[in-house]
Amino acid sequence: MIVGDSKPLEEILEMIQGKEKVLVLGCRGCVTVCNVGGEKEVGILATMLRIARKKAGLAPTVDERTIERQCDPEYIEELAEVAEGYDAIISIACGVGPQFMSERYPKVPVYPGINTTFIGGALEHGVWSERCQSCGNCLVHNFGGLCPIARCSKSIMNGPCGGSANKKCEISPDVDCIWHLIVEKMAGMGRLKELERVWPVKNWITSRDGGPRKRVREDLKQ
């Protein structure tokens, strides 16, 4: 899923300063699963904003709404009747949400309520970890199912580097050295020999480096 973090409340309050009617808009996709942008979080953020406004003696018009997905025009369309009645919309979806919203409703300022952080998964309740960098050319099967592009700080393909110590990365004792884990895993599977291959340079065209990406599926297009 796409994982995000709530923006600091102070930052959000500053964004909507002077805006009378505000809508907090959630998304039932990834951000609901990672507890940062679902119906529950919409309620929490909107309540916080209402408290702030009451405290400042302002009209506390902060409405709440959560749609199925903010990355799909058909759900964005559901707001057609109401969107432009707001002075500000805070989208607490991933970075796609505020963009799809402001593309569809150009008259309303749309603000991001969360910072989109990475593509990852939940290790346990309340803990998420990065797993994918969307390089566009998946190679994990060569590395024991562990991605060195997303999980090595240097994205090294022929690791581990000289900074690996006690299974940890040189940047922090909180970061695993994924290459240490790759070596262990491949050894456990009896496939260590495969890692002796000198990996040639990667083609980064499929990654963000090749420019913004777009996918067209002719078989699905209407």
Partner: peptide, 13 residues
């Protein structure tokens, strides 16, 4: 210029 114009279009930027 973006590297896609050049002779190493597969490079990271």
């Amino acid at each position: 210029d973006h590297q896609r114009f050049g002779d190493h279009p597969e490079a990271k930027n």
